[in-house]
């Protein structure tokens, strides 16, 4: 190594054999590059796990403290809409997986189609989510000064406060009814963070659709689609936990 300076020029001039354009200068091989970026993507997702982990911790504590409020407030959510959204998200995850497969097997039109479908499913998901948000907003269930506990102290006045048999739920005592605001705080914080992740993902999807139409990803280097797929599946997984925890409390 002591004679390293002597041959500095030779190495820098680039005597590498087989140097595909997407291989970055500091990696020795494509395998090493793919391995490293794949690992990095996983680590990034793990930071996301911890981020949502903080929110889930808060949720866990308050759900234990104010279970009646959480149970009553969750009846304000529409299991049908939530269920449809879950199915949509799972489907989008599936189409994303197919997009990865198309990219790996170099099917350009398939890749574009799958990305578009994934994007559209994301739009539908957010549309339904937005509809749900609007409903909460109109009913003054958005936390803040104008929050209303009407539906919980007087469930008979609210068609949603019914149990599985269609009978009105028991009214909450006023102090417990006030705690439903905590539920909606968490509902908006958690689903909002999830929706934000979807929005970011869909921004990247648009970018990828254009690149894919120009022929990227299907020329042997599909890693980028794969990393995005990991992200999209992760967002899907978060929802798989949010759905039962927020929508399905005490539905019987």
């Amino acid at each position: 190594m002591s004679d390293s300076t002597a041959i500095a020029h030779g190495a820098a001039a680039g005597t590498h054999h087989e140097h595909p354009p997407y291989l970055r200068h500091h990696f020795e091989s494509v395998d090493q590059q793919t391995d490293a970026s794949n690992f990095a993507m996983w680590l990034f997702l793990l930071t996301e796990v911890m981020f949502f982990g903080g929110l889930f911790t808060v949720y866990m504590i308050y759900r234990n403290w104010y279970y009646p409020a959480f149970s009553a407030a969750s009846h304000q959510l529409d299991v049908m809409l939530g269920g449809i959204n879950t199915v949509i998200l799972i489907t989008s995850s599936f189409t994303m997986a197919l997009a990865v497969w198309c990219a790996e097997t170099r099917k350009k039109s398939g890749l574009v189609a799958m990305l578009v479908v994934t994007f559209l499913l994301g739009v539908v998901f957010l549309g339904i989510k937005g509809h749900e948000y609007k409903e909460k907003w109109d009913k003054h269930h958005f936390p803040g000064a104008s929050y209303s506990v009407q539906a919980f102290v007087n469930p008979a006045s609210d068609p949603l406060q019914v149990n599985a048999q269609g009978k009105p739920l028991a009214p909450l005592a006023p102090d417990m009814a006030a705690r439903t605001e905590m539920y909606f705080c968490l509902y908006f914080a958690m689903t909002g963070m999830h929706a934000l992740h979807m929005l970011i993902g869909m921004g990247i999807l648009i970018f990828m659709i254009f690149r894919a139409r120009a022929g990227a990803y299907t020329e042997g280097h599909s890693a980028y689609v794969n990393y995005f797929g990991l992200y999209w599946h992760f967002v899907d997984i978060v929802w798989l936990f949010l759905f039962p925890l927020l929508y399905l409390i005490n539905r019987h």
Binding site: W65, Y66, P68, L172, A173, P174, D175, M176, A178
Partner: peptide, 20 residues
Amino acid sequence: ILNPSEHVTQGYLPIMPTYQ
């Protein structure tokens, strides 16, 4: 006194208003 409905003695209804 402040959060009565979480502290209802067995046999009583949670009707006490909060004084929060």
